[in-house]
Design a protein around this nucleic acid. Structure first.
Lengths: 361, 361
DNA sequence: TTGAAAGCGCTAACAA
DNA sequence: TTGTTAGCGCTTTCAA
C-alpha cells in the first residue's frame, strides 16, 4: 500500500520557479501586452462583441489561447455590474433534483447565463445554501425541492427574482414552476379505474414534501369516479422503507386491487415486500408510482408511474427568470410584479405493474 | 388550474420604486456611511480580524445586519488576491458523490474555505465543469468520481492543486484520495470464507469506474485463500439492471454459495431477481454489496456491504489541499511537489444477506 | 484604533 | 477600429 511520500520539513524553498512557469493565471493585461493591443480591445475580442477587426481578433485569440487565458468571472461581474449568474439550491441525492439541475444548466447556458450550485445537505441548511448564493451575487435563483423555509424565501425574493421548482411555495412571494400533483394522481386513478379497479389504496408520503397535495389529489379523483367509499389511504413516506412497511400492512389488513404510492422509491419498497410475501404484481395487485425515476424503468420492475418532466420544469423556470431579468435589467427586485405559478402537466407512463382487475368490485 | 397572470405588454413603467426600496445590494460603503466609519474599518470588522474596538465592532455589525449587508464574494477575491474557494466537480445522481460533497462542504467551511459545485451531467462534460471552476478562480479543486479525462486533468493540475477522490487517476499529476478497492473485496472474501463459503462469484462492474480494481481484488483475495479454482466472475455493471441480469445467469448456470457484487445498486437488482426466482438469501446464497449506500440499510434488505466512507475521503482531500495552499500561498502550482496517494481503508458492514454456507464446498 | 489611497481584473462609456 | 479613462466592491499597506 503506497505510503505518504515525505514532503514535510522546512522546504520553505529559495528555489526559483522551476520547470513550468505559470504561477499566476494570465490576465487580460497579459494578453494585451503580448498581443500589442489595449486591454479594452482585447476585452472586446474575448467577449465576442463587434468592434475589432478580423486580423486583431485572430491575433488576440491566438495569444489568449497560447497563454491559456481564461476570463475571471468575478472581475467580470464587478466591472459589468451584473453577473449573468443563476444560483441553484438543491438536494444532492435526489434524482428528480438532478434532472432539474441538468435542465437548468442547459437552459441557462443556452441563454448566456452561468449556473452556480449550492447544495442543501444534512449538515448544510437551505438558509446557508441561500446565503452562499447571495454572496456570489447571483442575479436570480432557482430553488429546487422542499428546501427553503418561508422566512428565508421571503428575504430572498426581496433581493432577486426567485423561482421555486417542483413544489408549491408556502408563500406567494416567488414564482413557482411545478407539476400539479393532483392531476398526476388523477391520471393514475383514471388509468386504474379504466382497468376496472375500484378498491384503490394510496400509500401516502406522510410528511414528505408535496405529500398533502398528492393525497388530496387522490381523494378527489376517487370521489370524481364515485369511489370515495372504496378509497383508502395508508401512511407511507418517501423511501423504500416506507413502501415496504405499507406492503406489510396491506397484506395483513386485506389487499386492495390497486395501490398508488407517493413516489417511485416507495413503490420499489412496496413491490419488493410484495414479492417476498408472495403477492404478485400485477396479478394480485396493480401498482402505480410517481416520478418516473430511473428505477421505474428497470426491466425487472417496469413500474407504471406518473412522470414529472424535470428538464421541462427547469427550462420553464429559467425562461421565467430571464424574462424578469431582461425587464428589470438592474437585476434586482421586480417589486410590483405579480408572482406567477406555472403548471407543467404530468404524464402517465404505463409499464408492467398495472393490469385489468381480476375480480372487479 | 391557475393560469398565467397577464403581465406582458408595454409595462415599461415610469413608476418609481414602490413599496420595498432596496434595488442594489448594500455595499461596504453603505455600511460605512451609515455607521460613520471608514470602509477599511468596516472591512476589518466584517472579516473579524483584530484592529477595531469592541464598540466599533458592535456598531458596525448592527448596521450591517440592519442593512442586510453581505460581502461580495467576487470583489473580495479580486481585492484579496485569493478566493478561498475550493471547486468541486461531481456527478449529481450518485449517492457516493453526494456523500463526498457533503464532507467537502463541512471540511472546507471549517477551514474558512468556500465551496463551489460544478456538475457533470449527461449534457455537461467534465471538461466544461472544470472550465467553470477555473473561471471562478478556485484555488484548488476536488474531482469526485470517474469524471475527468487525463488531458484536462493534466491541464488542470498545472494551474492549481487538484485532488481526485474516489478512484485512481490515470495519471500521477494529481493527488488521489481513495479507498483501496482490493482491500474492500478482500474484506468481503475473508468474511465469506470465514462463513465456510468456497464457491464465490463476483458480479463485476463491467466497464464502470473502478471495476477493474475490484475485479482483480476479488481474484487475488480468492487466490490468497487457495480458492482460485472455485472463484468465478460474471459480467455485471453499476446498476440494478445489471444485477438482475446476473442473477438470471447465475440461476441458469448453477448458483455459487455466495456472490459479491460491484456495488450496492447491482446487489439490489440481484437480490430482487433472486427473490422472484425463488432463490432465498442468505439461505441459498449469500450476497455482499459495495458502497454501503442508503439502500443497503433498508430494513427489508439489510445488505452486507463494503463501506467507503465518503465523508472521511472528503475530509482528507480537503486537508491535503489546504496543506498545499498554505505552503504555496499564491495558490498556484506546487510544481516540484510529489503527488501523493492517500488510501482510506474500507470497512465491512455485516448485515443480513450473508450467513454460514449450508453445504460447505 | 482609525482613515486615506492604491489597486485586484475586468467592462463600459467615450474620444481619437 | 482602436485606446483612454473611470470605476465595480473589496482588501491592504501605510500614516495619522
Amino acid at each position: 500500500m503506497p505510503t505518504a511520500v515525505n514532503e514535510t520539513d522546512a522546504v520553505t524553498s529559495e528555489h526559483s520557479e522551476p520547470a513550468v512557469p505559470a504561477s499566476r493565471p494570465p490576465t487580460l493585461q497579459d494578453v494585451a501586452d503580448r498581443a500589442g493591443f489595449s486591454r479594452a480591445l482585447v476585452s472586446i475580442v474575448i467577449r465576442g462583441v463587434p468592434g475589432a477587426s478580423e486580423a486583431t481578433r485572430q491575433r488576440v485569440l491566438e495569444v489568449a489561447d497560447q497563454l491559456g487565458y481564461r476570463p475571471d468571472g468575478r472581475a467580470r461581474l464587478l466591472a459589468a455590474g451584473r453577473s449573468k449568474l443563476i444560483g441553484v439550491t438543491l438536494g444532492l441525492d435526489n434524482p428528480f433534483h438532478s434532472d432539474v439541475a441538468e435542465g437548468i444548466y442547459q437552459a441557462a447556458e443556452a441563454s448566456g447565463y452561468q449556473v452556480v450550485l449550492s447544495a442543501v445537505t444534512a449538515s448544510r441548511t437551505a438558509q446557508q445554501a441561500v446565503e452562499t448564493l447571495l454572496g456570489y451575487r447571483c442575479e436570480a435563483a432557482v430553488l429546487v425541492g422542499p428546501l427553503v423555509p418561508v422566512a428565508s424565501l421571503l428575504a430572498l425574493t426581496e433581493r432577486l427574482p426567485v423561482v421555486v421548482v417542483g413544489q408549491s411555495a408556502r408563500s406567494r412571494a416567488a414564482d413557482v414552476v411545478r407539476v400539479p400533483a393532483a392531476v398526476g394522481l388523477g391520471l393514475a386513478v383514471d388509468h386504474l379505474v379504466s382497468l376496472g379497479h375500484r378498491r384503490i389504496t394510496h400509500v401516502d408520503g406522510g410528511r414528505a414534501p408535496g405529500a398533502v397535495e398528492r393525497r388530496t389529489g387522490f381523494t378527489s379523483a376517487m370521489r370524481r369516479h364515485g369511489l370515495a367509499g372504496t378509497a383508502t389511504i395508508v401512511r407511507g413516506g418517501g423511501d423504500e422503507e416506507a413502501g415496504a412497511a405499507a406492503a406489510r400492512e396491506l397484506v395483513d389488513g386485506g389487499l386492495p386491487t390497486a395501490v398508488i404510492t407517493y413516489n417511485d422509491a416507495c413503490a420499489v419498497g412496496l413491490l419488493d415486500m410484495f414479492v417476498r410475501l408472495g403477492v404478485t404484481v400485477p396479478g394480485d395487485v396493480s401498482v402505480v408510482g410517481y416520478d418516473d425515476s430511473k428505477v421505474a424503468r428497470l426491466s425487472y420492475l417496469r413500474l407504471t408511474t406518473v412522470s414529472q418532466d424535470g428538464r421541462r420544469l427547469a427550462a420553464v423556470a429559467v425562461e421565467r427568470l430571464i424574462e424578469r431579468l431582461d425587464r428589470q435589467p438592474d437585476g434586482r427586485r421586480a417589486t410590483s410584479e405579480l408572482k406567477r405559478e406555472v403548471l407543467v402537466p404530468p404524464r402517465l407512463v404505463v409499464r408492467a405493474t398495472t393490469a385489468a382487475v381480476r375480480q372487479p368490485g
